[in-house]
Simulated scan of single mutants.
Amino acid sequence: MSELKFSEDHEWILVDGDVGTVGITEFAQEQLGDVVFVEVPDEGKDLEKGDEAAVVESVKAASEVYAICDGEVIAGNEALADEPSLVNSDPMGEGWFYKAKITDASQLEQLMDEAGYKAFIEGQG
């Protein structure tokens, strides 16, 4: 069973067993504007929660995407190199950044569910 969680840094993780797919939220891509460049982590890279995992640049700003939990990268979304606009058009789907084998699942307990994240972003407005 897959579980979707969100961080206060506007990242999402879709957890399926011990693998998490990570990207940025609809809210985050709206704040960034048109994405023009994305750098995803290499396969095999070990990430600790809070590490810089990826870089996303837009016409407005450059921003880091931080590791949402400890894990080893098993895939980076290479499609984003050719088509960074996928982050804008489908941030919760084809615009994912990387997949990682989760090594500390307890860290996921600190994340928000969809309802909690929605309340979080409404409180920022």
Rank of each mutant, 00 (worst) to 15 (best):
G50V: 08
I24G: 01
G50H: 03
E57K: 12
D16A: 15
N77D: 09
F97E: 06
S106L: 13
F6M: 10
D104R: 07
E11H: 04
L14Y: 00
T21G: 04
E57F: 07
S106Q: 15
C69H: 06
F37L: 12
P84T: 05
G95W: 11
G76F: 07
Q124H: 10
V59Y: 06
K49G: 05
G95H: 08
G71E: 09
E52F: 05
H10S: 04
E64Y: 04
M112K: 14
S106C: 12
Q31G: 14
D51P: 02
E11F: 02
G76P: 04
E11G: 08
V87L: 06
D82K: 13
D34C: 00
D46Q: 09
E109C: 01
K60I: 12
E26S: 09
S89P: 00
K45T: 15
G20N: 10
V22M: 08
A54E: 03
G33V: 14
P84W: 14
D104N: 15
G33A: 11
W96E: 06
E114D: 10
F37G: 06
E3V: 14
V73L: 05
V65G: 13
M92Q: 07
A79V: 01
L86F: 10
G123D: 13
D104F: 04
T25R: 06
V59T: 14
S89E: 15
I121D: 03
L111K: 08
S7D: 05
G93C: 00
A61M: 14
A28H: 06
S7H: 03
K101T: 09
A115S: 11
E109Q: 14
I102D: 09
Y66Q: 12
K60W: 13
S2G: 13
F97K: 11
A75L: 04
T25G: 04
S63P: 12
E3F: 08
L47W: 03
E122P: 00
I121W: 01
L80N: 05
I24S: 01
G50W: 02
G20D: 07
Y117V: 00
E64K: 11
K101D: 02
F97R: 11
G116D: 07
F6K: 05
L80D: 06
V35R: 02
T21D: 03
D82Q: 11
E78Y: 03
E30F: 12
E48S: 15
T25P: 06
T21Q: 13
M112N: 12
S89K: 14
G76S: 07
K60S: 09
M112E: 10
K118Q: 15
A61Y: 12
V55Q: 08
V73I: 06
G50P: 02
G116R: 13
V15A: 09
E30N: 11
S85F: 12
E109R: 10
A115H: 12
F37Y: 15
Q124M: 15
K45W: 00
L4E: 13
Y117T: 01
L86G: 02
